Computed example of a mutant assay.
Amino acid sequence: MVDLLKGSDQSYRVMVRSDENETKMTSLGIPTVRAELGDWRSVEAALEGVDTIFLLSAPSPVMSDLHKGLIDRAISADVRKIVRLSAEPAKYSEGLPMYEQHAEVDDYLVASGLDYVILRPHYFMQNIPQMHASFMKDSQMFAQYMGDTRIPMVDARDIAKAALAGLTSDAFNGKIHYITGPQSISFDDVAKAFSRPLGKDISYVNLPYEDQKAGLEAYGTPDMIVQTVMSLFKRWSDGEDQPTTSDYEKITGEKATDINTFAAEVAGSF
């Protein structure tokens, strides 16, 4: 997202919390402002003269309070518009703690009186190399609890393009947009897509639910995220295939990235 803003003609600042990040951004020619959600004095100072906000933060048990606090202060600062990165499961979030928070904040933003664009993307393609690159490279396989369920995985870079469109145009205001890839695909499809650029026959192994859960816990994943992710995976695994939408194409005027293109672009970094 920052790279897209940097390459645009927009005036922007990136909110940073640490000296390290401020130094890094500055060295890249990226303008910054020091503030942190929850440190409301710093946020109020950072919002002076701001017209539009892109609201995204890491998962947290207090995310809803932090985002609602930001929305309240945006209203007080006469900010005009917020583009918020939510998540697709917010539309059926009951029993999914992380996405219940997203739904709560989305509703709060809609009722705030501010102009808004809410983006709800599906499962990130980037999760594949992050979780499975070493297994594909060393063992020619990867394991995941999901069975043969098909979901419309989306390239996170496409999400950034949709967000930039929302920030720079008012044509998409007042709506919730569901951002997906161009096809609903299975993890077998993912294995085939990575087999080509890696020059190996990659296999997908369907993990049992308990093994996937134990793996996330062993990795040190916070309990709230484990509960949410595993409950969501089970719903997808037990339910119907997840559909695509045309929202990305409507917002950007481009075709969404497919899994074969994504695999060809990222496999070289394995």
Rank of each mutant, 00 (worst) to 15 (best):
Ser134Ala: 14
Thr180Tyr: 01
Ile225Glu: 01
Ser112Pro: 01
Tyr92Cys: 14
Phe270Tyr: 15
Gln227Thr: 15
Gln130Ala: 15
Glu217Leu: 07
Leu85Thr: 04
Asp107Pro: 05
Glu20Pro: 07
Arg17Phe: 10
Ala171His: 10
Asp107Ile: 11
Gln242Ala: 14
Gly166Ala: 14
Val154Lys: 07
Pro222Phe: 00
Lys213Ala: 13
Thr168Tyr: 10
Lys234Asn: 05
Leu47Asp: 00
Gly147Leu: 03
Thr245Arg: 07
Ile251Lys: 11
Val16Ala: 01
Ser184Arg: 04
Ala74Pro: 09
Glu104Ser: 15
Lys175Cys: 04
Ser184Pro: 05
Lys6Gly: 10
Ser76Arg: 14
Ser186Trp: 10
Asp155Leu: 03
Lys175Ser: 14
Gln126Trp: 10
Ala171Ile: 15
Ala264Val: 06
Asn260Lys: 03
Ser27Thr: 11
Asp238Thr: 09
Glu249Gly: 13
Ser76Glu: 14
Glu104Leu: 13
Pro152Val: 03
Ala171Arg: 12
Val105Pro: 10
Ser139Gly: 13
Asp201Ile: 14
Thr180Trp: 00
Ile259Arg: 05
Met224Ser: 02
Thr168Met: 11
Pro243Ala: 02
Arg80Thr: 10
Ala263Gly: 00
Gln227Ala: 14
Ala256Glu: 13
Asp158Arg: 12
Asp148Arg: 07
Ala46Lys: 08
Ser60Val: 00
Asp39Tyr: 08
Arg73Gly: 11
Ile75Ser: 01
Ala156Glu: 10
Trp236Ala: 12
Lys200Glu: 00
Val117Asp: 04
Met153Asp: 02
Phe262Cys: 09
Leu37Trp: 11
Tyr219Gly: 15
Pro59Gly: 03
Ser42Ile: 06
Tyr99Met: 02
Pro97Ala: 08
Phe54Ile: 02
Thr52Asp: 01
Leu216Glu: 06
Val33Ser: 14
Ile128Trp: 00
Tyr108Val: 01
Ala156Arg: 04
Lys234Gln: 09
Phe194His: 08
Glu104Trp: 06
Val43Met: 12
Ser203Asp: 04
Leu216Ala: 12
Ala256Pro: 11
Leu47Cys: 00
Gln183Tyr: 12
Ser237Gly: 09
Ala35Arg: 01
Val33Arg: 03
Val14Asn: 01
Gly29Pro: 12
Ser57Phe: 08
Glu88Cys: 07
Ala256Ile: 13
Asp170Ile: 06
Gly268His: 05
Asp19Glu: 11
Tyr99Cys: 04
Asp158Lys: 13
Tyr178Met: 08
Ile176Thr: 13
Asp115Gln: 15
Ile82Val: 06
Ser93Thr: 04
Asp138Gln: 10
Ile151Phe: 03
Asp188Arg: 15
Ala256Phe: 12
Ile251Cys: 00
Met136Glu: 15
Ser76Cys: 13
Tyr123Trp: 12
Val154Leu: 14
Glu104Gln: 13
Tyr145Trp: 02
Arg13Ile: 10
Thr23Trp: 07
Phe187Gly: 02
Met98Tyr: 09
Asp201Lys: 08
Ala77His: 09
Asp3Ile: 09
Gln212Pro: 06
Leu114Arg: 01
Asp241Glu: 12
Glu22Trp: 00
Pro208Met: 09
Ala46Val: 04
Leu55Val: 07
Glu210Cys: 09
Met224Val: 04
Asp189Glu: 04
Ser27Ala: 09
Ala163Ser: 09
Glu100Cys: 03
Asp106Pro: 09
Asp78Ser: 08
Gly253Asn: 05
